[in-house]
Write a protein that binds this DNA or RNA. Structure first.
Lengths: 337, 337
DNA sequence: CGTGCTTTTGCACACCTATGCAATGCCTCG
DNA sequence: CGAGGCATTGCATAGGTGTGCAAAAGCACG
């Protein structure tokens, strides 16, 4: 294993100073002549600038920390893939951290600490909250943070979500239009803004339309829990279920059809939230509110980079609207067909 | 934004030299007395060692590069999550790169180059090949590479896969025992060792059992393609299909049941490969060969760290056996029930 | 108390690049 | 031809840590 080739080596070979080499590779001004000489020498020696040294001195690592909770819900792998790609396109790289399932703020804080250690230029928190202490710490370190698919009011952090309240409302309108009268709701985790907003939007719009929600149960974004509370709602005689995300909806549909022998949508209409790729699979054919992942990710990346380049920038709060995708898991109102 | 607190600041406050601080934090020998003084001062000032500077001088970044092809197949998010967690446990971090769908060696090479720039301590390539030139370059740079779920004979690279040939053979035995006589195979991409090995094992074992494989078609790990070639095989009158991975199997099952109105397993038995979490969903209830992700990941991490710590270590080639998981998508031989 | 040994500590330098500053070269215009 | 302006270049230093080396300190023992 031979020693790395440094900018000095290149400089020596090209007959210029080390600073000249540095300038050529960092895009600063340099005459055509030296630029050519340097590049030629660099190619000959196989020189590549040392990113670590560069980061050390500039204080910018061109690395983004991405914290993601759990990838079992296919919404997140999709987002992760797009983050990685979009950031690569912007010349950034992605340092991924997973926070264990039932992790508290302590774990998250430890992870953020490690990110600070690595001098990441920015942080994306996907479906993860952030303790106030850490938020303050990032602020102090001048590291931008954007929450993805999770809000945190009063935190002063930038955030990108879909229009969750509106989405919930759309489902309410759709089910009422479909002639349903006994709606139930397997909610997304009520500890998350996302879950609460969808629930609020759904229940509020139902009320406006003069309908009652027979029952709301927290499914906690969990397969087993979702099935458990579905049984409770079935006991109340629901004829339609709005489910807090697609991932739970799949479990519920399996339970209804395969365990209980019920028909979807004839016995019960099911509407989900997310429109993960699997929702389009024929086995589920799930009617659901689309979260436009692509646009959400692009917006998040843009917001982050904006903050990185202009530290004084305001923390933006963005909601992105997504359509209700009509498929076969819920009765479709006449005239919409 | 205040200046970072450095080891000099801590040293000054603790009344020792900077080297003492360095030694305390890098675990080298230091007396109890100074160690205490240093830690106290560090806590008071909120000091954290600068990872970049440390990496610059030690040449070890404690970062692992993970290249992953596409996360649409749920096998990979699962693996990714485990990699991240296991590496975190070992004190490493994960820099994720995604290589675009139809990317050639050029793209992969560019990505690896970026990893080298970041001085990663090791590289995991999940379902991604590696050009010979780059392999040589990693070798030269002394950076260990492990292939995950992909073999590359003659590359001299370490690799971890499941026992794909054996797995294919197990499926052959199972289908024959189930009384099937007209077996077809929607193969995994024949450009990958994984796909070829499964196919070879399946076909060879069938032959040993005196059975013929009616047809083999390359599904290229792609939903659409898998469905297309399924139709071809159906035209030949198959009564059982071994499908190169679960992801394709889902698409095929949807096609058979929802589009063609066939019954699985009554009309056609379906067996997949991977045992992704979704395979256990009641809607599919897929009989499949399990790839023990957990053990595969742990083995990969262990092999990588082993090579990092002992550069002269041999590149190990590991195959991990996984059981055939019996579910409802394929006729179960009598006596096995 | 002196000697030999081990542990601890400080000094100085290395790691590799970016950048402020001053000097040099070049070009233009009067 | 000379002066002034601008682009370019080299020098030297900073960025924060780890580590070899030698000096110092601690320790045990005769």
């Amino acid at each position: 294993m031979t020693r790395r080739v440094t900018s000095f080596d290149v400089a020596a070979r090209a007959g210029v100073s080390q600073s000249a080499v540095s300038r050529v590779f960092s895009g600063a001004s340099a005459s055509k002549a030296t630029s050519d000489k340097v590049r030629e020498a660099a190619d000959a020696l196989g020189y590549r600038p040392n990113v670590l040294a560069r980061s050390l001195i500039t204080g910018r690592s061109r690395i983004i920390g991405l914290v993601v909770a759990y990838l079992g819900n296919p919404f997140y792998p999709d987002a992760l893939e797009r983050f990685s790609r979009d950031l690569q396109d912007e010349g950034y790289h992605t340092l991924v951290f997973t926070v264990p399932e039932g992790a508290g703020d302590t774990d998250t804080d430890r992870i953020i600490q490690q990110m600070l250690d690595h001098q990441v230029d920015g942080i994306v928190l996907a479906s993860v909250g952030l303790g106030d202490a850490l938020a303050a710490r990032c602020e102090a370190a001048g590291i931008p943070v954007v929450l993805f698919n999770r809000g945190q009011i009063g935190s002063g952090l930038a955030q990108v979500t879909s229009a969750n309240r509106l989405g919930g409302a759309k489902v309410a309108e759709f089910l009422v239009a479909g002639g349903h009268t006994r709606m139930g709701h397997v909610a997304g985790w009520q500890g998350s803004s996302t879950g609460r907003d969808r629930t609020d939007g759904f229940v509020a719009r139902l009320a406006e339309l003069g309908q009652d929600c027979i029952g709301v149960e927290d499914g906690r974004y969990d397969h087993v829990e979702a099935v458990r509370v579905t049984d409770i709602l079935l006991g109340k005689g629901v004829d339609a279920l709005f489910i807090g995300n697609d991932h739970m909806a799949f479990a519920v549909m399996d339970h209804l059809r395969c365990t209980l022998g019920l028909s979807v949508p004839n016995d019960v209409s099911i509407v989900g939230y997310d429109d993960v790729p699997m929702a389009a699979f024929a086995a589920y054919d799930l009617t659901t509110v689309r979260q436009p992942v692509g646009r959400m990710v692009k917006t998040t990346v843009a917001a982050l980079i904006h903050q990185i380049e202009d530290k004084s920038a305001q923390a933006e709060v963005t909601e992105i609207d997504g359509p209700l995708i009509l498929r076969g898991s819920a009765r479709i109102p006449e005239g919409l067909q």
